[in-house]
Every structure is written in C-alpha cells, then in structure tokens.
Design a protein around this nucleic acid. Structure first.
Lengths: 178, 178
DNA sequence: CTGTACGTTCAAAATGTTTTGAACGCAGGG
DNA sequence: CCCTGCGTTCAAAACATTTTGAACGTACAG
C-alpha cells in the first residue's frame, strides 16, 4: 500500500483515538473505531489485533463495548466463522447514541440530586440557627444556578436527540439564561 | 453547622467533582471548585486542604490549574499573607473559558490534520496503483464526513463563545448536516 | 468423537495517574 | 539577620487503569 495512504490512515486513527479519550472513552476503543471507519471492508478480531498490534483479548472486550455504544456493528460473512465488525459510519448517529445513553443519564442524575438538595434545605428551615439559615439561603442561590445550567444542557441534549438524520438547531432557539 | 446543610454541601461538592472528571479534569479540581462555589467566603489553601482532607501540595497545584482555567480567582485579603481563592460563580463564564481555551484548540487541530490528509491524498493521485486510487477515494469520503462533523462543532462553539452574559442559541439556527 | 479455529474471560503484570510530604524558597516581622 | 509562616516543587509512594496471555468454552469440520 502507498506510503501516503498509510500516513493518512495512521493519523486519522490516531486522531480518533485522541478524540475518544477526550470524550471519556478508552483510547484503544477510539483506535478500533477509527480503524474500522477507515476500512472499506469489515474486519475480524484478528485483523484488528494485527493492525493495531494489541492483544486479541483487548480487541474482544473493546469491540463489545463499541457495539454496546452503537459505534460498531457485527457483520455476518457467510462461510466464515470469524466475527466481523464494521464501524457505524454515520457520525451523527454515533453522537446520538452516546448522548442518549450516557450524557442524558448524567444530566438527569445531576438534576435529581440538586432537587433533593433543595427539598432538604427547605425542610430544614425551622431547625436552623440564624447563621445556618443565612447559609441555607446562600446554598439555595448557588444550587439554583446549577439547576439553570443543567436545565439548559438538558434542553440542548433533547433537541439534538429529537432530530433525525440531521442535527437541527432550530428548536433550541431562544433558550435564555438568567 | 446543621447536619442537613453539611449533607447538601457534601453532595454538591461530590457532584461537581464527578462532573469535572466527566469533563476531563482531575476530580480533586472539581471538588476544590465545588468547595469554593459553596463557600460564602474566600478560602485559603489551608482551609481547602483541611475541608477536603488532602495535602497542601495538591491544593496548591490544583488551585493554580483552576486559576489558569479561569474557574477560580485569587482574592486579596488585607492584613493576611495567605492566599485566598474564590470560585468564578458565573457558570457560563466558566464554560466559555473552558470552551475557548481547550475545545476550540482541539477542534482546530482536528480540522487542520484532516485538511493535511486531504492534501496528501490529492497529491498522491498520480503515483497510485488503481487499487490504491480506489482506497484514496474511500478515504476522502470518510475524511469529508469527519470534516463536516468538526465544522459543525466549530460553528456551535464559536456561537456559544460569541455570546456574552447569556448563551444565545439564535445564531446557531439552521445548521444543516448532509 | 477428536482436533482445530475461533471468541471470551480474568488474574497478573505493565503502565499511567494522583497524592503525598519533605525540602526548599521567599517575604515579612522582630 | 535570623525566625516563622506561608506557597511551591517534585521524587517517591499509593493507587487506578489498561493490557496481556494462558486457560477455558464452544461450534464446527472431518
């Protein structure tokens, strides 16, 4: 294979690995995804292990993770008992998968915790000393800021997730933050 | 201090620590930021080390990182040679700081690498065997997808960064992805 | 039924990251 | 000038994550 093609392949895979790490995934996962993305044909576990020079065990585990994240799909090749994988090459689909299964949970959890805190602070009203009462007020303000932040994040998320095929920012228009 | 207030303080700090880790920062950094955010008064390095039960060295290093990220500011307290810090409590300002110094660089780097790849592939045109030429075509397609992705990311980023005081999604309206 | 070619698992090893604390430097007070 | 109280630094230790590879299970071919 031509040297320049190899160079392009390598830097793309390295870049996607970097990106993956950036998004909080294992870097190898990113490299596996990148390798598949830059392969015109589905690849077997052994192909992947050979190309990236990593152990087969690692490939096995990471590919299953990629599958769970909706970033790669198993491909059936008849007359071959190997497993073949192909990358989900619609990047918007990948983003949507990740946002919907990971970021959404995270935001919802945060909002829930903050809601609990507000309740706790309000229910504490009576039993507080004057100094504590002032502190509770302060906490409520800060928590309100956090809630505003996560609420915007949630709206943005749901909008991106609601869009199909293309990301459509129209519906996010006019979110105002105090 | 009231038990409920302590609980709220703890869970908020833990949550912000978690969020920080999520965003690719050290978790301690997040806890330090959270501690400051939930403190009505600026705090000294020793205060922070004591409250979080971590070493002073760690506080020193992490606070300077927080300062560089624009997440915390040093506060001058007269008649005291200690350093005091306060959190930047405008969360949108924090986001803007992070986006503009970290994510923007990352996106620009990615676009640059992709651009180089395209050039390399085009310049390789003549010297390629028919099979390689086909592969080069394939690479160009995939790279175009990646470029589209990062370009949208860049537009979104610049829009958020361009907004002042409040995040204004109006200008991001109608970004279409092929 | 047996052998082979695969994928999976997981404990141990390798590697990477974070935390600590002792050593140091520096400023100000006495 | 020396002492004290502070912040900083960085090597070593503690800790966490990732990677490996040998052992195992399974399915299929012969």
């Amino acid at each position: 294979m031509n040297e320049k093609l190899i160079a392009v392949n390598d830097s793309t895979i390295a870049g996607i690995g970097r990106l993956a790490r950036y998004f909080g995934f294992a870097e190898v996962m990113g490299r596996l995804f990148g390798t598949l993305l830059m392969s015109p044909e589905p690849m077997s576990l052994d192909d992947l292990a050979a190309q990236l020079e990593i152990s087969k065990g690692s490939v096995s585990m990471n590919m299953r993770a990629l599958e769970r994240w909706g970033m790669a799909k198993e491909v059936w090749m008849r007359g071959d008992r190997k497993k073949y994988y192909a990358a989900e090459h619609d990047l918007w689909q990948v983003i949507r998968n990740v946002l919907s299964s990971r970021e959404r949970r995270e935001v919802e959890l945060a909002l829930q915790v903050l809601g609990n805190s507000v309740e706790k602070l309000q229910s504490a009203g009576d039993e507080l000393s004057p100094a504590d009462r002032q502190l509770a007020e302060f906490y409520l303000e800060r928590i309100a800021d956090l809630q505003a932040f996560f609420t915007v994040a949630q709206m943005a998320l749901e909008t991106v997730l609601g869009s199909d095929e293309s990301v459509d920012f129209d519906a996010v228009t006019k979110i105002e933050i105090g």
